[in-house]
Design a protein around this nucleic acid. Structure first.
Length: 1041
RNA sequence: GGACCUAUAGCUCAGUUGGCUAGAGCGCCACGUUGACAUCGUGGAGGUCACUGGUUCAAGUCCAGUUAGGUCCACCA
């Protein structure tokens, strides 16, 4: 590879051999490693309470420790880091709190699956403690990997504060919250129909369930109607079902109250032939639908959500017919012990045998599956723990209503409100081993259960009973003070109404009481908490709540410090939460309600919901589609800054962004766009599919969910060419800086006065000031896409394309150089600061180089630059540098230069060929043109031969018209007059079109009278300009004739 | 069934409270390696703003409907 390098000079330090040559392209890998290490050693990422600064707090949406980070995390992390770096530069004490989530069922499932695959062991083989130990080992491995990935994307988290939802700090928050809620009567235990995963033997949340159509059957049976004494009346009720085995748990047959076919049967009974039970015929308008099937439906309250609701409404018996592993329990009589699928077949046969079978049809049936085990879900009645949501949900709705929490983009407040508005109680127990164990101990006590509705009294009554038991504890003989202290850490309640089982909740940090309870025969609840219970506490738990006396411990310094928790005090509430829309309900809403409940304040003021990354076909990315892009591979290929820059250019207010992916040829690196065909390719005739590279014609295989590439085959990796955008930008910035650095020989710091500045200096300063202001407002509004575009356009299209080109001659001129250098240094200095949040590594690399060449810098006042751009101040907007009049004059200069270049291209005149330019224009314009004549020469190798009112068209010249100026470029021997006239005629027609439009507008009475004055004036001005241009064109045409 | 989002150049997207002679990057065509950059420069071609109505002096932008795609929620005996 031809890597040319360029020498450049360092005047005030000979000892710079490392930097004496700067490569032509930015090489990200070494820079990244160096600066990650540097920032960490300097402690720039650390944040501590500081009364002189405003806090800015971001809590990371804790990634699951199930696996590596993907593109979504990459986008999420990039934005948080961008905000954190920006606010830090603005002078905030900016905390970005890192950490990970134990992710309960997801992590346990991954570890169990691997254990089964690799060793053939289930969790029951090794037991609770051993399994949990294995999961911890997994967690340590993946947590490290995730944190490292975050560092690779440049995350400036305060790594001393890393938290994990199962660590001591978070655990004590979980314990206290549960205890408080239990004591306040917000947590209760009840029988509920849950989604039961018979494989993992746990309840699965609604959102962890997906529905999939499977081939099934739709049977029709009948139940005979019977008299009070049980004898058949001869009538039958026909009904259909996809799950005949649930007959064993039927407690009614339901019809619509107005269904005339059945009105006379309502209140009578039917017999379930397979077990001989008699059940009533009831009427329920919500459950039965006259139009569907036979209009009658069997009701199985314990095994169907709708039937459950119907059961509650009608006081039906809830008969659970399943064991937790999906086999039929003793309620099933002769079918007990059978798997539910076997029972289904057996029952169908029996019904047929007994003559109650009516028919069957094949049908696609939507069946709920567990996200985790991919097995079919059974609706199952089981004992679970719940949080009452009514008041909590209301508080979280109020917080958004009165704007204590604001959601960006605003439309997502609807998602949040709608979900909370349902106020469905939150099932928080999971039958797992990995997680926060429910801190409740239970035992059947020899006392009368308190009557329902007298909860307060009952609590006291049972607390006395427990205290008594503690006093009677001979072996540990507690003093009365100890007993009282222990009782204060207890909350007592009853379980399900009607049971004589008493439940004692113990606050965290009271292991001695737990021990006593165990001794007294209490047993701790085996379930663990829903993982969202602990992540709901994340914003305050990570800051050390409920310990208000000490600052939370730091990594490597586990002792809590101080006399007051200043960290919590200072950093709570957070500033902004950056997350994706799919967890607005699961996580965001719950954080708000627990924050209000525990802290009395919202957890964050803003929520920014970022877009979701889809592939080129509009599908979500996932391993199972074979369209996932690995952020680390992208970083390896394009560099972190390039990835971040492209990512931020995508993040605005849209819901989704598309990232078309492709296969990178392992031979030549050319990218083949991925299509649906590739995604669906399967091995044919035993051959692994391969793709032929269009560029090098060699074949390669590719990753796929359907097959594994052959051993030793050349395999493409999945990339996206959209990251060229960021990489090219970094390269541009690198080379512009490189050019500047090569021209800083002899740089001297010093102030300048406005009068000393050239037009291009004042222009670039004006544009820089505007850019800084725009970027700042765009970031304030979370419009990262716009901010990226703004900063890119300034850098490339203004600074590089125009300013650098214009300043080149002055940098070669001994006398003019010092001032030009100061402006150049000033602009680069500001530009690097403006770009740092977007592209931290390259800006830091360049900043340090700049520091070696020009430590002291500034225009109207000078000062020594910060050691690192990361802690340099965010560019201040100096409005007095913005000069609109100058910008519009500059624009005319640009237009003329473009017009000249246009003529060159049209007539195929080499850029080296010098041209003459004649301008017919007003004396003012002429004077302005004369003042910048050097730039015509510099930028378009054109000499301004004459300018003024008296200028005539030289013969045989190319022409352009600009409204307030006619331009002529003599091209003896090159001009084809006819073609030139045709070109001008075309231009004329275009102008006439626009003029007609404008005149029509102004001729419209309604427009002139109703449109705002400034709009009308704008049109008048535009029209005048168009007319002037038309005149100019017509003049030229005349001259050409 | 309910809610939300999207539809603008071959591709990916901008287009702020309606004022448009509709823009950018990539790709394409032509020319070009003069000491920052070929990951580049200069110039160019390319669009009935999904469709149908409506509101308005004025609609890519607002409203209603249609079509297509996406996402979430609910439901499917």
């Amino acid at each position: 590879m031809n890597r040319r390098t360029t020498r450049f000079f360092f005047s005030h330090n000979e000892n710079r051999s490392r930097m004496s040559e700067l490569p032509k392209t930015y090489e990200p890998t070494s820079a990244q490693a160096r600066w990650i290490q540097h920032w960490e050693s300097k402690g720039y990422c650390n944040a501590d309470p500081n009364p002189d600064r405003a806090p800015h707090t971001i809590m990371i949406p804790l990634p699951n420790v199930t696996g590596a980070l993907h593109m979504g995390h990459c986008l999420n992390g990039t934005i948080q880091d961008l905000l954190t770096r920006w606010r830090r530069m603005q002078g905030c004490e900016a905390l970005w709190m890192p950490g990970t989530d134990h992710a309960g069922i997801a992590t346990q499932a991954v570890v169990e699956r691997r254990m089964l695959e690799e060793e053939g062991l289930t969790r029951h083989d090794i037991g609770r403690d051993a399994l949990v130990e294995r999961i911890w080992a997994w967690k340590d491995q993946y947590e490290g990997r995730i944190l490292n990935q975050l560092k690779q994307i440049g995350a400036s988290c305060d790594w001393r504060r890393v938290r994990f939802t199962l660590d001591d700090v978070c655990s004590s928050a979980v314990r206290r919250t549960f205890f408080k809620m239990f004591r306040d009567g917000l947590i209760y235990r009840g029988k509920r129909l849950v989604n039961w995963d018979t494989h993992l033997q746990t309840a699965v949340a609604d959102d962890e369930v997906f529905s999939e159509d499977v081939d099934g059957h739709f049977w029709t049976f009948n139940y005979p109607v019977v008299d009070d004494d049980g004898s058949a009346t001869g009538q039958v009720i026909r009904f259909s079902t996809t799950r005949p085995e649930t007959m064993l748990g039927d407690s009614a047959v339901c019809v619509h109250p107005t269904d005339e076919r059945y009105t006379d049967l309502i209140g009578k009974q039917v017999l379930i032939p397979v077990n001989g039970r008699r059940i009533p015929i009831i009427a329920d308008a919500l459950l039965a639908d006259k139009e569907l099937g036979t209009g009658a439906v069997k009701v199985t309250p314990a095994h169907d959500p709708n039937d459950y609701a119907c059961g509650l409404r009608n006081g039906l018996e809830m008969i659970n017919i399943l064991n937790s592993d999906g086999t039929i329990n003793e309620e099933g009589g002769e079918f007990a012990g059978m798997d539910r699928k076997d029972a289904r077949r057996a029952i169908v046969s029996k019904m047929e045998e007994l003559g109650h079978y009516e028919g069957v049809e094949d049908r696609k049936i939507p069946v709920k599956h567990s996200d985790r085990s991919k097995t079919e879900i059974e609706p199952y009645l089981s004992d679970q723990w719940f949080v009452k949501m009514d008041t909590l949900a209301q508080s979280a709705m109020d917080a958004v209503d009165d704007k204590r929490v604001r959601i960006f983009p605003q439309r997502y407040t609807k998602t949040y409100m709608d979900w909370l508005g349902e106020k469905r109680d939150w099932c928080i127990s999971r039958q797992l081993w990995w997680g926060h164990r429910i801190p409740v101990w239970g035992r059947t006590l020899p006392v009368e259960p308190p009557p329902d509705g007298e909860y307060q009294d009952a609590t006291e009554l049972i607390a006395d009973q427990v205290a008594e038991l503690l006093r009677e504890d001979q072996e540990n003989s507690l003093t009365e003070a100890e007993v009282n202290e222990a009782i204060s850490a207890l909350a007592v309640g009853t379980g399900v109404p009607g049971e004589t089982r008493f439940l004692v909740c113990v606050d965290g940090g009271h292991e001695e009481i737990e021990a006593k309870l165990n001794y007294l025969g209490f047993e701790q609840d085996p379930d663990v908490l829903d993982t969202w219970f602990s992540s709901a506490l994340w914003p305050h738990a990570t800051l050390g709540w409920p310990d208000l006396q000490h600052n939370p411990p730091l990594v490597g310094d586990p002792a809590p410090s101080g006399e007051k928790n200043e960290v919590l005090d200072y950093f709570y509430p957070g500033s902004v939460l950056v997350t994706s829309r799919d967890i607005i309900t699961l996580w965001v809403a719950r954080m708000v309600l627990t924050g209000l409940y525990n802290m009395g304040d919202v957890p964050f003021k803003h929520v920014y919901i970022h877009p979701k990354i889809l592939d080129g076909l509009g599908q979500t990315m996932s391993k199972s589609k074979g369209n996932g892009v690995d952020p680390l591979e992208l970083i390896d290929k394009y560099g972190t800054d390039a990835v971040r820059f492209t990512i931020s250019s995508l993040a605005g207010e849209t819901q989704d962004v598309r990232l078309p992916v492709g296969y990178e040829c392992p031979h030549c690196e050319a990218v083949t766009a991925q299509t649906k065909k590739h995604q669906d390719m399967k091995p044919m005739g035993g051959d692994t599919p391969s793709i032929k590279c269009a560029k090098c014609k060699k074949s390669f295989q590719f990753p796929s969910p359907w097959f594994t590439p052959d051993e030793g085959a050349a395999v493409a990796r999945i990339v996206s060419e959209r990251f060229d955008y960021g990489r090219n930008f970094c390269n541009k910035l690198w080379n512009a800086s490189r050019f500047a650095f090569m021209n800083l020989e002899g740089y001297t710091p010093g102030t300048v006065s406005m009068d000393d500045l050239q037009m291009e200096d004042r222009w670039v300063l004006s544009r820089l000031a505007t850019t800084a202001r725009e970027v700042t407002t765009q970031l304030e509004r979370y419009h990262f896409d716009q901010a990226t575009r703004t900063v890119r356009e300034f850098t490339w299209n203004e600074f590089c394309d125009w300013y650098l080109e214009m300043v080149k001659p002055r940098l070669r001129d001994e006398a003019m150089r010092p001032l030009a250098q100061r402006v150049l240094v000033y602009v680069i200095d500001n530009l690097l600061r403006l770009l740092h949040p977007f592209a931290p590594f390259i800006t830091e690399e360049l900043w340090h180089m700049l520091n070696q060449l020009a430590t002291v810098r500034g225009l109207f006042e000078t000062s020594e630059a910060s050691e690192s751009v990361m802690v340099a101040p965010w560019p201040e907007v100096s409005e007095q540098l913005v000069d609109a009049e100058l910008e519009s004059r500059f624009e005319r200069l640009q237009q003329i230069i473009v017009a000249v270049r246009n003529v060159r291209a049209l007539y195929k005149i080499s850029p080296k060929e010098p041209l003459k330019l004649f301008m017919r224009c007003s004396p003012e314009v002429a004077a302005q043109m004369q003042a910048v004549a050097d730039q015509f020469d510099n930028l378009s190798k054109t000499m301004l031969a004459a300018a003024g009112l008296e200028v005539d068209r030289p013969g045989a010249s190319a022409n352009f018209s600009m409204g307030d100026a006619d331009g002529y470029i003599p091209l003896e021997g090159l001009i084809d007059t006819a073609a030139e006239r045709e070109r001008q005629e075309k231009k004329k027609q275009e102008l006439i079109g626009h003029i007609t439009g404008a005149e029509k507008k102004l001729g419209n009475e309604n427009f002139v009278s109703k449109a705002p004055e400034n709009v009308v004036n704008d049109v008048r001005e535009t029209l005048a300009g168009l007319k002037a241009q038309l005149e100019s064109v017509e003049r030229i045409i005349e001259e050409l004739s």
